[in-house]
Simulated scan of single mutants.
Amino acid sequence: MEDTTDLSPKADASLYNGQPSDTGSSCPSAGLTSRTPSTSEDTRNGVSVENVPVGNKQWFVLRVSYGRIDKAKTFVEAKGIECYVPLRYKEVRKQGKKRIIPIPLLHSFIFVYATAEQVETLLHDNKVVANESRSLLSYYFDHTIHLQDNPNRNPPLTIQDEAMNNFIRLTSIKNPHIIPVTSNSIQFKLGDNVVVTEGEFKGIHGRVARIAGQQRVVVELFDGCLVATAYVTKEAMRKEKSITLLG
């Protein structure tokens, strides 16, 4: 993860967790477009972080050619399709003052909430963009399963609503100590699936891990996509039964 990336302020509240850059204000947290209704009571600053399942729409993970998250977000929304671009919040000093600015959490992925047909059309249109030497978007495949009618191929990766809501909750919290991690850099405490019961991470589900000498809760959205909370005390969490959040 590179820390040198910066983002220009955006007026669209659905873009980049709804958080304008270079501000000291609290995070409004949604990251979803206004077209996604919600019945959840779990809100921060009046903005919901959950979406209601709509018909046969799913959360698709799409790969973005490196460095073009901004362009990908604009392209998807121009097609009238909802998407989510997670951020992490970096603490910096400018002119002697401490500020927290948003930077991309995942440089190569965008999460699209749509039907399979909509995504197929989106990727087809993406391939015919004039003057582009590489595709802006492509499928990210689920390598853990195979298509029933073609055992040599993997289906596109989709994320369950429950898992996506949990991920959006976590990545919408404006805390510079929330970080992306790799499986090699963490030591899980076997079997400790927990839910955080107190503090700003209340309601986050994940696994207890020790990272850089601190106890944190790790949310794994899919293989290779792991995000860790800041330090969480053992008193601020409770164990729960093992749950599967992958799509």
Score class of each variant (00 low, 15 high):
Leu123Tyr: 02
Asp149Tyr: 01
Pro176Ile: 07
Gln118Val: 01
Thr39His: 04
Thr5Arg: 14
Arg134Gln: 02
Leu147Phe: 03
Lys90Gln: 15
Ser183Glu: 15
Trp59Asn: 12
Lys202Met: 13
Val76Pro: 03
His107Val: 08
Gly224Lys: 12
Arg63Tyr: 13
Pro155Glu: 05
Ser172Arg: 07
Gln148Val: 05
Glu77Val: 10
Tyr84Ile: 10
Pro151His: 06
Tyr84Trp: 10
Ile103Ser: 01
Thr33Ser: 15
Gly213Leu: 12
Val61Tyr: 10
Tyr231Pro: 08
His146Glu: 08
Val196Ile: 13
Leu246Cys: 04
Glu2Tyr: 12
Val227Lys: 15
Thr43Val: 11
Phe111Ile: 07
Ile179Thr: 06
Leu157Phe: 11
Asn154Asp: 15
Gln148Tyr: 03
Ser40Val: 13
Val47Asp: 01
Ile69Phe: 00
Lys241Arg: 14
Glu200Ile: 15
Glu120Asn: 04
Ser34Asp: 13
Cys225Gln: 11
Val76Ala: 06
Thr36Asn: 04
Arg153Asn: 11
Gly191Trp: 14
Leu136Asn: 09
Asp161Phe: 07
Tyr113Val: 14
Arg68Pro: 00
Pro53Glu: 14
Glu91Trp: 06
His143Val: 13
Thr43Ser: 05
Ser29Asn: 14
Leu105Phe: 11
Lys174Val: 02
Ser26Phe: 06
Glu132Gln: 04
Gly203Lys: 07
Glu120His: 04
Tyr140Cys: 09
Arg93His: 00
Gly67Ile: 09
Asn154Leu: 07
Arg207Met: 09
Asn150Ile: 12
Pro37Trp: 04
Glu77Lys: 14
Ala212Gly: 03
Ile159Asn: 08
Phe60Ser: 07
Leu15Cys: 12
Phe188Asp: 03
Asn17Met: 10
Gln118Thr: 01
Tyr113Thr: 14
Gln148Lys: 08
Asn126Ile: 07
Ala30Cys: 08
Ala228Glu: 06
Glu240Cys: 14
Pro151Thr: 11
Glu50Ala: 12
Thr244His: 07
Asp12His: 12
Val92His: 00
Arg169Cys: 06
Gly24Phe: 10
Gln58Trp: 04
Gly247Gln: 15
Val195Cys: 11
Asp70Ser: 14
Gly206Asn: 00
Cys83Pro: 01
Ser48Phe: 02
Val112Ser: 06
Pro180Phe: 03
Pro86Met: 08
